[in-house]
Each structure stands twice: as structure tokens, then as C-alpha cells.
Amino acid sequence: MNQLEIKNLNVSVAGNEILKDFELTLPKGEVHAIMGPNGTGKSTLAKALAGHPDYEITSGEILLDGESILEMEPDERARAGLFMAFQYPSEIPGVSIANFIRAALQARLAEGEEMEATAFYRRLYEKMDMLKIDRKFTSRSVNEGFSGGEKKRNEILQMAMLEPKFAVLDETDSGLDIDALKVVSEGVNALRGEGLGILVITHYQRLLNYIVPDKVHVMWDGRIVQSGDKDLALKLEEKGYDWVKTELAPA
């Protein structure tokens, strides 16, 4: 029950079938990595999990702790405990990071229940310090004028504040230099624990040097074609994606 189960998932975008009978089980407490070449459906998986309206689930099932989330709106899924760190986070003009996160936390409270402001800021600053985010960012508009690294750290900050049950990190390493990559990875590692399952989607192996996964899955043409431990990522790095194409792809 304490897991995110994706069963026989078929997803199409604008009539094109992208995910094909996709299967994955992510237990809480584990970190799984999904690797694969561009266009193989990695980001589609992330968007479909989060409930993006352009991604049509034609069949299959997604169970979060045993409960189907297919009928849930994106905001309901998020409140049920699913988090997605975006590859390209949107800019939200005029809405400060503090107000944004507050609204997200407030949405998780019962009607009439109010958040305590002092405790909120204490926690926010603590997480910001961990992610080496300048406190001045608190009042800046979400992602507006942020560098690539700042955007990604902001994603992890939100994850830290919202305490999801399952987090999907969609190409969180893209656009990061080595320093930013380390900071983001440290942030993610600090959040690892019994209550959280993490799915790391990445094109490159280098992120997995810092966020060491329990399992690695290789994706090709809308489905997982091989699973293994962290060494699979190294093997993939060594052999390149052509190896997937020639050796792993179903005939």
C-alpha cells in the first residue's frame, strides 16, 4: 500500500501514443531513477502523473497508497501527496515565493484552519538556508528572472516545504552547473527518508553520482526495457543510448 503503482499506463498527447503499457512501482523510502534518450516518454510520464490536461490517459491505472488518482484534478493529486519538480517551472508574476508556498500549504489545511505565520517563516528560512537560497528571494515573484539553478532550487524548496509522499523530479539536473547540481542534490538527499518515494527522471548519469538511486530503470519507446541497481546507470553512460536501441529495445 505504501507505494506509487503505475499499471499498464497508456498515455497519448494530441492523438500520439507516447506511453505504452508503462509499469512501475515506487515504494516509499526508495529513490528510483528513470533514464532514457530524448523523446522516449520520460517527461510525458511526469506530466501524466501530475494530471496535465494535455496528457490523455487512455487506459491503465495510477495508485497512490492504493488509491486511484486518475479521476483527481491536478491540485487534488498534489494535496494527496504527489509532487512534481518541473523541468521548466512557470514564472508567476506578482506572486512572491512566500505567498505561493503559503497558499499551497493553506490549501492542505482544513476549512477555517489558519497557518501560524512565525512558524511558517522559521521553517521556510530553514529550508532556504539548506538550499543556499538567499532570503531576499522570499519576496521575489516565483521564478521571474531566476537563473536555471535558482529555478531548480526553488522547486526543491517547494518540495521540502510541502512534504509530499511521492516526488517526481523531471530533468532537475538540466541547466545546472556543477555547484548548483551539488546544492540541489544535497537538498534532495536531505529529504530522503521512510515517508518519501522519489522518482528521478534524467537524461544523464551525472546527477546519479549525487543522488544515488536504489533502482535504475531504462526507458525506451514509452516503456521500461531494463531495470537494475545503480550500476545500470554507469553501464548506460559507458555504452550510450545506442546500446539501448540495439540491445534492449524489443524487436
Binding site: 490536461p53 491540485d75 498534489a78 518541473f86 505561493f100 497558499a103 499551497a104 517547494q158
Partner: peptide, 15 residues
């Protein structure tokens, strides 16, 4: 996409 981003954080459409 901006509305979706807010939704993905659990924020209902009205809010």
C-alpha cells in the same frame, strides 16, 4: 501552464 503549475502545488483554481 501557469495555472497548471499552481495546481501542481495543490492550489485550487479559485485560489
Amino acid at each position: 501552464e501557469q495555472i497548471f503549475y499552481l495546481a501542481a502545488r495543490g492550489i485550487p483554481r479559485e485560489v
